[in-house]
Simulated scan of single mutants.
Amino acid sequence: MIARVYSAITAVAGALACDGVAKTRLNTRDQYLYRSIDDVLERLAPLLAQNRLCILPRVHERHTTDGSTRAGRYWWR
């Protein structure tokens, strides 16, 4: 089972290595090209499906901060 998972991961990595994910978006303020997370997911999703893989996120830790500004607005992150 584990060997099949690693083979599938290798197949996805190989496909990404051949074509990559193009930097097609332009940051107009600083004048540079970049790829967005949506670009990466759009390229990755069919490869994952083709190789019968899925990504399951796992949260190990979570930190939050909250407070208010001098103007009295409440914020958190």
Rank of each mutant, 00 (worst) to 15 (best):
S36K: 04
L33C: 05
Q31K: 09
G20C: 03
Q31S: 13
G67C: 05
R43T: 11
Y74G: 08
C54E: 12
Q31H: 09
L47G: 06
D39G: 00
R58L: 12
P57V: 09
R35Y: 12
A45N: 08
M1S: 13
S7C: 13
Q50C: 07
N27P: 03
S7M: 12
H63I: 10
S7L: 14
A11R: 10
E61C: 09
A22Y: 01
L33P: 08
N51C: 02
V12R: 05
T24C: 07
I37Y: 14
R35N: 07
A15T: 10
T64G: 13
A45W: 10
W75K: 06
D19E: 13
R73G: 00
A49L: 06
R4S: 15
A8Q: 12
L41V: 08
G72L: 14
C18M: 05
L44W: 08
I37V: 15
I37L: 15
L41C: 06
G20K: 01
I2Q: 15
I37R: 13
H60D: 15
R73C: 01
I37G: 05
C54P: 00
R29I: 07
V21L: 07
I9Y: 09
R58W: 11
V5Q: 14
W76D: 15
W76R: 11
R73M: 13
C18N: 04
D66L: 09
D38R: 11
H60N: 13
D38G: 00
L26Q: 03
Y6H: 12
A11V: 04
P46Y: 00
D19N: 09
V59Y: 13
R43D: 05
V21P: 01
Y6G: 02
E61F: 08
A49N: 08
S68W: 01
R25S: 11
